[in-house]
Design a protein around this nucleic acid. Sequence first.
RNA 1: GGGCUCGUAGUGUAGCUUGGUUUAACACGUCGCCCUGUCACGGCGAAGAUCGCCAGUUCAAAUCUGGUCGAGCCCGCCA
Length: 376
Amino acid sequence: MPRESVIEIWGKVKEEKQAPAGVEVEVSKLNVIVPVAAPLPFEVNRTQEMLNLKIDMILDHRPFSLRNPEIGNVFKVQAEICRSFADFMRRNDFLEVHTSKIIAQGTEGGTALFPIQYFEQKAFLAQSPQFYKQMLVGAGYERVFEIGFVYRAEDHATSRHINEYLSLDYELGFIESHQDVMSLEVEFLRYLFENIKKNCAEVLNLYKINLPEIKEIPQIPLLEAMKIVQDEFGQKPSRPDDLDPEGEKLICEYTAKKFGSDFVYITNYPATARPFYTMPDLENPGLTKSFDLLYKGLEVTTGSQRIHDYNMLVDNIKKFGMNPEPFDFYLEIFRFGMPPHGGLAIGTERLTQQILGLKNIREASFFPRDRYRLTP
RNA sequence: GGGCUCGUAGUGUAGCUUGGUUUAACACGUCGCCCUGUCACGGCGAAGAUCGCCAGUUCAAAUCUGGUCGAGCCCGCCA
């Protein structure tokens, strides 16, 4: 019978110390329910090291390749991330929401959006639930979270970008500053790592991953981080208002050595590097109450306190050279009493990728959509 | 949008620099036979690749050149 056939076995289970699982079945009856009808595309029941498959081969035969334990078990960890996120949020009185992925207006000015035809109107796929989660905080729910796909039409081809990714979002009202948003995330990450250790022990073992305990996550203001990268590594920044990917790797190297943390918050980004709804830092003119979370050299979270004052928000839209009028649907609730609030978004695939040390983000997406791939 | 790299049996690689002993090699898989208390780790044998495609250079091209198609990675941007 060919490998991978669907079979039914009757027999006695008996203890057998030599067997990998400690037991074996003494077969008395064997039925081939569905035999394999075509040659297999590759040997699926091997270690990835032996197979050395190219990502393209894996993805071209996606459902089949998922039978490989190392390839398929990625998604047990990913499911644990989503479950833990929802669980943690509910315990902290967040309401789970689902907002539309068909939108009329982009949240970052309208650049990286997929246009779609919505009957006689032009619409876009949402690049973020940003406006909606804010509006729902204003609606009086105060704390909301969402797990949903977002779409970015960015024309890039790297091992850390896909054009459709699962975003873990939350937004909470009545905060003092972005620090409240961050400390909640630290708690979540601790909870998540405990859960993964507890519920995905076999998978971690398969990947030979030893998840460290998350203690404190260090915070470094962006400008300081850029200076560290330059002073410690002699790496000149390629742009004035953010770390480049190399800089992100280096700053993580630095904090891993100095603080023993795989995570580091980069805070207080310049307003020029952030969307218009980001709260300015009045004590540091030109900077914002914002942060990114880097994990083992990769950005996995972006968040901030948001502007809650109507006039300030409208002014800021104008400052960004945009017309506030198309944003009316979003701005309205800000006139009816919007509490101070903030939130963040976590890239699920990136988090999965970094936890398991995957080379390519596409390994952390069942059916990834990238610059050229639309199937399977 | 810019840059770099790669494309050899089902899969993964070697060969390419310095063109010709290559009937293109090796591992795994596939098929057959044998052996066997099975287990990714026994033995013997077989099939399977016009070396992505097109053109050029040459007596001769997997190997050199150009084009083309496909793929991967990096940058910008971002989760």
